[in-house]
């Protein structure tokens, strides 16, 4: 139960941060804001996939997919710090 609650909180926070990044990008057209937007969306997606894997009707191992998403999130965060 606690695990599910934390997963939901993480997902909501990721989506809120994605929205803030979107507003920042719309106002400034700064490319790093776009990378952050993608990173937070991917983070939310990762949480959804992890959450769904808990359901019994999903038998596939989603470990590889979530690990790839994790790498992509970290990569995008790194790129967003690069000075233009």
């Amino acid at each position: 139960m606690m695990e599910l609650l934390l997963a939901i909180v993480t997902m909501v926070l990721s989506l809120l941060l994605a929205w803030v990044s979107f507003v920042a990008y719309r106002k400034s057209h700064l490319r790093p804001a776009l990378y952050l937007l993608m990173a937070f969306i991917l983070l939310a997606l990762k949480k959804v996939i992890e959450g769904l894997s808990l359901a019994s009707w999903i038998e596939r191992d989603v470990g590889v997919v979530t690990a790839i998403l994790e790498v992509m999130v970290l990569g995008l965060l790194l790129v967003s710090m690069w000075r233009r």
């Binding site: 929205w19 990044s21 507003v23 000075r83």
Partner: peptide, 19 residues
């Protein structure tokens, strides 16, 4: 509220980073 948060992020991104 979103504007305020986005403004903070813009300042952070505009001023931060490395070459």
């Amino acid at each position: 509220l979103w504007d305020k948060l986005a403004d903070g992020l813009i300042d952070l991104l505009a001023g931060g980073g490395w070459e």
